[in-house]
Structures are given as structure tokens and as C-alpha cells.
Design a binder for these strands. Sequence first.
DNA 1: ATGGTTGGTAGCCAA
Length: 262
Amino acid sequence: MKIATWNINGIKARLDVALTWIKEANPDIVCLQEIKSATEAFPGAAFEELGYNAAVHGQKGFNGVAVLSKRPFDEIAVRGLPGDATDSHARYIEVCVPRQGGVVRIGNLYLPNGNPVGTDKFAYKLAWMQRFAARTRELLGYEEPFFLLGDYNVIPEPIDAKNPAAWTSDALYQPETRAAYRALLNLGLTDVVRACLPGPGFYTFWDYQAGAWQKDHGIRIDHILASPQAADRLLAAGIDKHTRGWEKPSDHVPVWLEAELD
DNA sequence: ATGGTTGGTAGCCAA
């Protein structure tokens, strides 16, 4: 089973690019972030023509997440990250996909950017990460295979940036941000891309500005975390960097894994 | 080099 995540930065502006990549990569499950679309405005029919079912948690203008799956969903477990009824941002959706002998649970997240540091936006990011950790602890209690995929907006380590010094004042690289990400891993999760592609030079985002792509001034902020039961079935992982060079690209590229889950 | 680019919305904000 091939499972992917991609921050597409607007589904309406990126529909052709998204369809081109899906035909090329042929994933079984795709998690999309920043669809910037209301749920009812999501172009689900275009993906259904390629054989996918869509689960959408959208919002007009900003944020928004969607899961595409060739297999029909058993259930949409969660729309919106639990733990704060006043949080109106559409940043999390969780589905269960059937497999032989059970399900594989898919959590699709768009973690807050948090810039600028020192504002309520940064406080919201850290609070969101605490709530996400709480949900993760619940899922670990089920002792089942699950993956948490998405745009984490976290640069975990210095090797995850071409030029770490350029990010020292950024919310993506603050000590508190990195500590919260480490705390997630310390619950017992595996950073799938780090495990399969150790070492520097693997990035998932290049800013549109200042020639970041041309200079390979990238960062690794799109991650896949696996539960122990999922990590045991891991086969491979990759980053489809070439899509950043396409016409009208997203500033993020797809990240994927293959696992023995039938 | 505290710059500059993109998408969605509406006459700026988020990233």
C-alpha cells in the first residue's frame, strides 16, 4: 500500500498538477493540506474519475484538508482536531481504511505555521501541538497500525534545512517547536522519512521567494509519523522533489511511503 | 541583502 501526503497550496489553482502527479505516482491513499476550499467546493468528481473516494474537511479561503483513498473509507473518525471547541481552523481529518484483518488509520494534519514568534499565532501552534499529542496518545492505546501525515511546519533538526541559520527566528525552528515534535516521537512514533532516508539534503518545501528552489534553499517540514504496528510493516519512503520544478508548482512536494498493508 | 512570490479574497492576509 502506497500512502502519500502533499500540501498543494490551493486545490483550485493546483487541480491539474494534482491529477498529473496522482496518475504518475498511483498512490492508494493521498492526504492533501491547504486545499483553501470549502468542503462543498472541493472538486471531488475529478478524483473520483481516477478511482478515489474523498473525505474533506474544508474551510473557505484558508487551511482545509482532504483524504483520497482508492478503498472506500470504513469511517471518517474525526473532523477537526479534538480538544478545543472554539478552534475554527480546518486542520485535521482522520479516517479508517479497511485492510485484511482490520484497518489502517490515517490522520491528516495541517499544523499551524506559528509565525511570527511571540504572537498569539505562535501560542496557538504550541497549543495545537499539545492537543495533537493528546490525540496521538489516544490512538496509541488502540495498538493498531496508523500513520499521521501532513504539513507539520516543523524543521526537526539542523540537517533538515539547507541553511539552518536562516531559520533561527522562525516559528518552524524554535526550541519549543522542536521539543514538541521530539515529544511526539518519544511517545513511540517513527519519523518514516528520517528512518528511510537518513542524512542531510532531503527537503519537502522551497519558498516561492528569493530563488529558494533554484538555490536548493529547502527545508524538511512535511512528515509521516508511524505507530509501532505501522512501522513494523514499512517498506520504503520517498520525496517526489521533481514536482517542484513543474509549471505552477506547489511550494511543497509529495512525500510518500510504502507499507505491507493489504 | 529583514529581501521577495503565490493563492484566495476583495480591495490585504496567510504562508
